[in-house]
């Protein structure tokens, strides 16, 4: 199988050339060459990103340089205090949770956390939480409700950890309980999918009042590789599966499952993280403003109606296609 990140290679080559030139310092002729290269880079980026395939979007969502939850927390919040442990079994470093200030206001922040280098990746279990991670998240989110703080969650996980220990301690129960409990929390919950929205392991931090996705993040019921292995009996068909699964932010917006797509710089969030932090902070501040005016019971009811409307099916009693969001369903 060819390297799925091949599409980035020509861009990286020009970037390397620019870096090399820059090492030689200032010089008129070099400046000219540099400017030409920069122009070429822009053009190439625009071309590549104009026709980005779903599979390429998956690669960007998983990009090793992509900002992770703690990066967002550092950039958009102040006075961050991480709290640890589920008070039952252990602390799970694949999820970070705690309190901070957002534009001065005390808030709760919860997010999946991946590691940057090998050691960190292992420590964070590649961002795949175990039951104790979900239970920690819930413990801290309940505290947020108690002290009347809004909750921000950041979603970026390949999925909940599929291991023996996780199963033994009730992975399914931990996720299920979070889904229900988040539906009940009487405090605003703002969700941002920043990277990989991997199935139930992502959704377990994903029930709330506003759901945003970064432009090159994904949200899916199964990984393209897993889907290909099951439905095509061939993991190499992941590219085909990625298209079929309709997992991009644009797809989810079209299906009526999310509220907003946050644009990323050409090349992805890692090219200019500061721009992404700024854009996202603006959106979240606006949305928090909207939600803060609502009575807790209103919030509860609206959140229910939001999820209640998700799905596409036919219902004879209401006339065909009555209930489908997004693309009109074809008659069966």
């Amino acid at each position: 199988m060819k390297d799925p990140r091949d599409f980035e290679r020509p861009i990286q080559e020009i970037e390397a050339q620019i870096e090399n030139l820059a090492l030689f310092g200032e010089d008129k002729s070099r400046d000219k060459e540099m400017a030409a290269l920069r122009k070429k880079l822009e053009k190439l980026r625009r071309e590549v990103f104009a026709k980005l395939t779903p599979w390429q979007t998956v690669q960007l969502a998983r990009h090793p340089k992509r900002p992770y939850s703690l990066d967002y927390i550092q950039a958009m919040f102040t006075d961050w205090q991480e709290l640890r442990g589920d008070r039952r079994f252990a602390d799970d470093p694949a999820i970070v949770a705690g309190f901070a200030r957002f534009r001065g206001r005390p808030v709760c922040v919860v997010g999946h956390q991946k590691g940057r280098d090998t050691k960190q990746k292992i420590y964070r279990n590649f961002g795949m939480p175990k039951p104790e991670g979900y239970r920690k998240a819930l413990r801290i989110m309940k505290m947020a409700e108690k002290f009347r703080m809004p909750i921000f969650t950041f979603i970026d996980t390949p999925g909940a950890y599929p291991g023996m220990d996780a199963e033994e301690r009730g992975q399914a129960e931990a996720i299920a309980v979070n889904l229900e409990a988040m539906a009940r929390l009487r405090t605003p919950i703002l969700i941002t999918v920043t990277g990989e929205g991997g199935s139930g392991g992502a959704l377990a931090l994903g029930i709330g009042d506003r759901i945003n996705m970064l432009q090159f993040s994904i949200y899916s019921v199964i990984s393209p590789e897993g889907c290909a292995a099951i439905l095509w009996k061939d993991a190499a068909q992941a590219e085909t599966a990625a298209s079929a699964l309709k997992l991009t932010a644009q797809d989810l917006l079209r299906l009526g499952l999310i509220d907003r797509v946050i644009e990323e710089p050409l090349g992805g969030a890692h090219v200019d993280p500061a721009a992404v932090f700024q854009a996202l902070e603006g959106v979240l501040a606006e949305e928090l403003g909207e939600l803060s005016g609502l009575e807790p019971e209103d919030l509860f009811e609206r959140r229910y109606q939001k999820f209640r409307a998700m799905g596409a099916y036919l219902d004879a009693e209401q006339g065909e296609a009555a209930k489908a969001k997004g693309p009109a369903p074809k008659p069966a």
Binding site: A181, V221, L247, Y304, R308
Partner: peptide, 26 residues
């Protein structure tokens, strides 16, 4: 489990049913 052919629409059913059960429990 979830029906892959409905992808993320099927994933969201988990949230939808859990929210309905939340009301039942309350």
């Amino acid at each position: 489990g979830a029906r892959m052919q409905e992808s993320v629409l099927s994933l969201m059913q988990m949230g939808k049913v859990a929210a309905a059960l939340a009301r039942l429990h309350e």
